[in-house]
Design a protein around this nucleic acid. Sequence first.
DNA 1: CCGCCGGCTGATTGAAGAATCAACCAGTCG
DNA 2: CGACTGGTTGATTCTTCAATCAGCCGGCGG
Lengths: 238, 238
Amino acid sequence: MAQSKSAADNGNRESERRRTILRAAIDVFARKGYHGCRIADVAKEAGVAYGLVYHYFKNKDELLETVFDTGWSGFVTRVRAVVEGEGPLSAKVHGVVDVAFEAYRVDPRAVKVLILEIARSPAGSRINRQTAFVDAIRLSSELFIRAKEAGELRADTDPLLSSALLFGAIEMGLTAFVTGLADSRDAQALERAKAQIADTFLHGVLADASPGAESAAWKPEKPSSEKSSTKSKAPKRP
Amino acid sequence: MAQSKSAADNGNRESERRRTILRAAIDVFARKGYHGCRIADVAKEAGVAYGLVYHYFKNKDELLETVFDTGWSGFVTRVRAVVEGEGPLSAKVHGVVDVAFEAYRVDPRAVKVLILEIARSPAGSRINRQTAFVDAIRLSSELFIRAKEAGELRADTDPLLSSALLFGAIEMGLTAFVTGLADSRDAQALERAKAQIADTFLHGVLADASPGAESAAWKPEKPSSEKSSTKSKAPKRP
DNA sequence: CCGCCGGCTGATTGAAGAATCAACCAGTCG
DNA sequence: CGACTGGTTGATTCTTCAATCAGCCGGCGG
């Protein structure tokens, strides 16, 4: 970015290096998996020396953890914005699906790492990745708790499970693309999948029939800004 | 098992040892994850010596692969039986869900390993674990292809994606128990989850007229009046 | 022009653990 | 009852990497 060599630029260049490494880590993790790659692979991908990775990250695990923080917290922030925003349930469900698919559109590899490495990885080291996933489900379950109190949902639905099912559907939908079951270069397929996931789920869960919003009516929006602190975002390519 | 010491018993005892080790592997993998455990842990769990594991399995990976073969092929066989059997779609969907939950009831740890270690593991060694999961989805997608031709499904559903969503819902439902989000000792909760997954999915995917096979008829507490008028197009955030 | 400073390098180390293998022993058979 | 078989053992070897650290530039201030 900035080409100036001023002293102030120093910190800039530092964090740029850091970002390069992080980016490389995401790519390599996505390609070979966390356990399937060496720090050397990450360094090579980033075009830096082996040891530099350790200059910016305490260890391999912190690298993954940072990938996690960066990507996941951004995702959760956006989901929270949707959940806590105004509007009917159907809009929010579409919103949650949108957030997930938008993240995928922006950076499929990062999403792949989140899904394949972090969300499902067995109880690991420091961070509680398991918990992270569970937290997101709990968060969006508030949606369904409120909706159920308002009588919007079928009587026999459990809010927590509903929330889990939504995420399950989203995740498996994305997995279909991540694993190549579906062609992720096909933008239309992505749109259709998005619509079908939200609609299927809504049809399944809503008390009254038509949620009205068939796929055609739904237009994706760019998650532009967060309510308060727009900070750590899903990794983006410049 | 048979205590006789006849010669014919030999082969029996061999495979019994093997099964013991396999069983131990499942337990240890479920507890600490494939990468998080040593062969020594498996041996200890099985109550055998380190080296014996290598007498029955070529290496650590073959161990996991065998766990996979054993568990997954059984699952797929049952799913195939359901898919190729007679009956309405709704019964089959319930059947598939049943198969998954029954597997969990019978051997939760094995299911945990399948879900956490195998189905989602990144492109790893030889075996096509990725493919296996995809195959199951393809298999059950035939269900939806046929149902759609029969006009049983909403027009805008993609069979393959529907199948993926069903498995996604099942998997996340099970994950809720596997990770402790829900209490898996609570048999009722399992039953309820099972029913809700199948019903939610069916409601979401079936063409409107509810087929007789549907489970308990639910009653809306009140027709949600305003909700239906508000399109999902509503802004997901102000 | 020199020498310092901090980002950067990559050979080196050593821990962890997968895989091996020579010895051991519990049965079995002649 | 003694030779034999093959399942079983676990110390030993060998490999793989994560993590270290002793220095190398290259810019910058003096």
